[in-house]
Write a protein that binds this DNA or RNA. Structure first.
Lengths: 215, 215
DNA sequence: GTATGATTGAAACGTTCGTATGAGTGAGTC
DNA sequence: GACTCACTCATACGAACGTTTCAATCATAC
């Protein structure tokens, strides 16, 4: 790929993570990348297209890995119940692994990923929907096989909660570090992954809540 | 309070929730509120101060309610272990209750609250830190009494996860509605609260994760 | 009624934004 | 050497931004 294009993507990823999409100007990006302002509108068409490119560079490979892990899990348990833990791991692990592989750049990517779920505006929303469509069906079906007693409504809510934990952990504002006075290290990726999985496994297996009687 | 001031706060709350802080202009706000543009800089000093005002109008009462519920719980269990569920409820319930009380306006406030945890920029970050300081210590201590076997590091991580679930549930992008094809209703506040509590109770009580052996 | 202080109005300020333009550069082909 | 084509550059455009200014308006107390 063109070197300028990549420099732009790298700079944009970092600045978007730091300041958000709206608050990051194309001029900041080109300044940090050390390229000309017009290069963005040459290599990408617009700011929106740049945002899209920043995401798709990473998300595609990540979701492939997720599906690969899910495939492996389903293959190993073709004729029986699907154990919950590996399904959950297929959902959780690749995203943290990708962050670790990216090294220092992973810190930016984490924040971006965490933020994309709450980002207003159609641009990011659209990207998220497209990427979700690809894996949502597969994982819902897998979770259903793992937790067959759980009504669909409850299952979907709990997957929603899982995404919340993952997203918030990735977003990694420094609140946790501050509150814990450095005790908790969000960048110890492997330990964080295990903690997340343990929490989510328990949550998914929680007894059904007592529903309030509707008046 | 001045009627203009309140009209501005209402309009700002809705637009901030819909489009985010950066993407909402003061002109949009004054147009929606039906007041003059200069009114914002007269009643508040700046856009940042307006953002601050939008939040503090709601968060103060909410945290008071949280602490009140925690007080009650601690009073009832002065001489014994603190049960987990009421502590968690004190943490979770007031925020959902506030959203319900606010009616239609609660939908905007929910999104705002959910987003503030991931919002970039010093303005929101600072507000969040100030408000957190008030209740963080109290709740950490309470959770520690409820889960005395849990090491502090794990406890803090799990509180972090809880905030993730709450924040993501509040942020309430319509992903869940879309995926569930309307099966899940995020605005059934009471049922949502029970589901969140059930999930979080189980997560908090999860067995300790097997930590990876550090190489 | 008139003076006073708080509030609102219309208009403008300077800045920065995303985007567009057209000239310039440099490697590769004939 | 002339041509091509992908790319980079400096610069400009119009629009929208947050903020400011100052005159007009209003309620209220004297």
């Amino acid at each position: 790929m063109n070197a300028t294009k990549e420099k732009i993507l790298d700079a944009a990823e970092g600045l978007f993570a730091e300041h958000g999409f709206g608050a990051t100007s194309l001029r900041q990006i080109t300044a940090q990348a050390g390229v000309n302002l017009a290069a963005i509108n040459y290599h990408f068409r617009s700011k929106d297209a740049l945002i899209q490119a920043v995401f798709s560079r990473r998300i595609g490979p990540m979701n492939e890995k997720r599906l690969a892990m899910l495939d492996a899990c389903e293959a190993e348990n073709a004729n029986g119940p699907l154990p919950l833990v590996p399904v959950l791991r297929a959902f959780v692990v690749p995203i943290f692994e990708l962050c670790r592989e990216l090294g220092d750049r992973g810190r930016s990517f984490r924040r971006l990923m965490g933020r994309m779920y709450v980002e207003p505006g159609d641009t990011v929303r659209k990207i998220l929907f497209e990427q979700m469509q690809i894996i949502a069906g597969r994982f819902i079906a897998a979770f259903q096989r793992s937790l067959p007693h759980l009504p669909m409504v409850e299952l979907l809510w709990r997957i929603h909660f899982c995404i919340g934990v993952i997203s918030h952990t990735l977003a990694g504002t420094n609140h946790l570090e501050v509150v814990s006075k450095g005790l908790c290290d969000p960048f110890d990726t492997e330990a964080t992954t295990e903690r997340v999985v343990a929490f989510l496994v328990a949550g998914m297996r929680a007894p059904l809540p007592a529903m309030p009687t509707r008046s």
